[in-house]
Amino acid sequence: MISSLLLIITPDILKYYQKYKVCAVPQKTVHAEHREMLQKIKDKDKDGMKELVLRHLSNLIDFAKLSTKGEIPEFEYGHI
């Protein structure tokens, strides 16, 4: 059920992200963070993984907070 819903809403989410540059993150940064995530998983480092995921998603979290207030900002990675 969830997979089906994701297939329906994903194209709209991607258009929205692109329009408002929600995930305007340099590729090198994304790759480094994902490699670090894999290492945290291998190390079974739950606390480190939690911190890393929150850091990784910080722009998205900030964007969501502002958009729920009706404030949709244009921003670059790391800056709102």
Rank of each mutant, 00 (worst) to 15 (best):
M1P: 01
I2Q: 09
I2C: 05
I2N: 09
S3K: 09
S4Q: 05
S4T: 01
S4H: 03
L5Y: 06
L7N: 14
L7T: 15
I8H: 04
I8T: 14
I8S: 03
I9H: 00
I9S: 02
I9T: 05
T10D: 11
D12F: 06
D12M: 00
I13L: 15
L14K: 08
L14R: 06
L14Q: 05
K15R: 15
Y17F: 15
K19H: 08
K19T: 06
Y20F: 05
K21L: 10
C23P: 00
V25M: 14
V25H: 04
V25Y: 00
P26S: 06
K28N: 14
K28I: 13
T29M: 10
V30K: 04
V30L: 09
H31N: 07
H31K: 11
H31C: 03
A32P: 00
A32V: 01
A32W: 07
E33H: 12
R35N: 12
R35M: 14
E36A: 04
M37Q: 08
M37C: 09
M37H: 03
L38R: 13
L38K: 14
Q39N: 06
Q39Y: 07
Q39A: 08
Q39W: 07
K40N: 11
K40I: 11
I41W: 05
I41P: 04
I41F: 09
K42E: 02
D43R: 12
K44A: 13
K44L: 13
D45P: 10
K46N: 05
D47H: 10
D47T: 15
D47Y: 08
D47A: 12
D47P: 01
M49E: 06
M49C: 03
M49V: 08
E51P: 00
V53M: 01
V53F: 00
R55W: 00
L57T: 09
S58Y: 04
S58C: 07
S58E: 13
S58L: 12
N59K: 14
N59D: 15
I61D: 13
I61V: 14
I61C: 06
F63P: 01
F63Q: 06
K65Q: 12
K65I: 10
K65V: 09
L66A: 07
T68R: 08
T68Q: 07
K69I: 03
K69H: 01
K69N: 02
G70I: 00
I72T: 08
I72P: 07
P73S: 01
E74M: 03
E74L: 03
F75W: 14
E76D: 15
E76A: 15
E76Y: 15
Y77D: 08
Y77S: 11
Y77F: 15
G78N: 02
G78M: 01
H79N: 14
H79G: 04
I80H: 09
